[in-house]
Design a protein around this nucleic acid. Structure first.
Lengths: 182, 182
DNA sequence: CCCATTATTGATAGTCACTATCAGCCTGGT
DNA sequence: ACCAGGCTGATAGTGACTATCAATAATGGG
């Protein structure tokens, strides 16, 4: 509930034009309570609970294929699941992320966490440091390409199919090793 | 001079354990003067002047090859030039970046600027939105893979050859399309 | 149903990054 | 000598965030 008020206010008055006190007042709680649930102001926008879900999808893919195809395929599937229902909240948060430098930076740093989750999800497949290094390189490259697709999707106001855009970004970056479009 | 004092203090007492006032006092200037030259505390570490250089290298590569090979090759060359002289300052700044969340986030956001510079450097080759989109996807994937190599290089205290590590990361992410090792 | 333990909230007072404003100072050109 | 420009500094803010402690609500056992 606090988050809903926060995103609404950020869209109305801008991120920097809204103080945490404003959010607290709109939500009818004290500023302390806001800080208790969202350690930083950025977290009011950037709560991302589907990291483990992506990692699980990756580790469920067959081991024989190129890493970027496995990881990319999992990301495309996740995007399809995310955009299946109501896009608007996702789109609003994305637009805030892209237009606000502080949010954009923190969002990119979150990729670091997700990338680690993906590598960890590979388990024994990425046991030794060299293999883990290669998996991390593949994962972060995939996430970076996906981010470009997210930005384009948001700047086009959510028209177009997000999974298709992500697939196109993967094709541009990885060529034959990219996940196959269906 | 201010920056030199800042990096020294950050390494001694940690980034969060050092205030901008401490830096100002160590440098013998007023806090206002520090803020005048470095708009944010993060900028005391994250001065990055070789963006246009990378973009120029990319646009100088032959147009027939895959984008990731052209961009990747330019990044490997730039890394070779950067590590040719004295590594220590670069290494110290990298370690600060990796260990401090705020710096890591801002550094990743700087990739966004560099990626845009690379796409712009392609000029007419990335004229229409679709081509620019594909170029951006390739560029950001390359930068993300390079970042993984930078992190590994820093955690290994600068042993190992940075250009080789970057090439290895590219090979892991892009396979055959990666720039050829020399 | 009541009491004790515990989690959640709130108020207060701070620190620190950063900004706006204004005043002094030091330079270079005439 | 004089004046105009930028560089510097002091002061007084705003706002994110933290530490600490009191108060209130929820929970579980008797």
């Amino acid at each position: 509930m606090i988050q809903a008020h926060a995103v609404r206010l950020f869209m109305e008055r801008g991120y920097d034009g809204t103080t945490v006190n404003d959010v607290a007042e709109a939500a009818g709680v004290s500023p302390m309570t806001v800080y208790r649930h969202f350690p930083t102001k950025e977290d009011l926008v950037l709560v991302d609970q589907n990291g483990p879900l992506v990692a699980a999808r990756v580790s469920a893919t067959p081991a024989g294929q190129p890493l970027v195809r496995r990881i990319g395929g999992a990301l495309v599937e996740s995007a399809r699941a995310l955009t299946a229902g109501d896009d608007r909240f996702l789109l609003a948060r994305l637009r805030l992320m892209i237009s606000t430098p502080a949010l954009r930076a923190r969002h990119l740093d979150n990729h670091h966490v997700l990338q680690q989750a993906i590598v960890d999800g590979l388990g024994d497949e990425a046991a030794d440091p060299d293999t883990a290094f290669r998996a991390a390189a593949a994962a972060s490259a995939c996430l970076a390409a996906m981010h470009i697709a997210l930005v384009r999707w948001a700047t086009e106001d959510g028209h177009g199919d997000l999974p298709d855009l992500i697939s196109e970004a993967f094709a541009a970056a990885f060529g034959d090793a990219a996940p196959r479009r269906r």
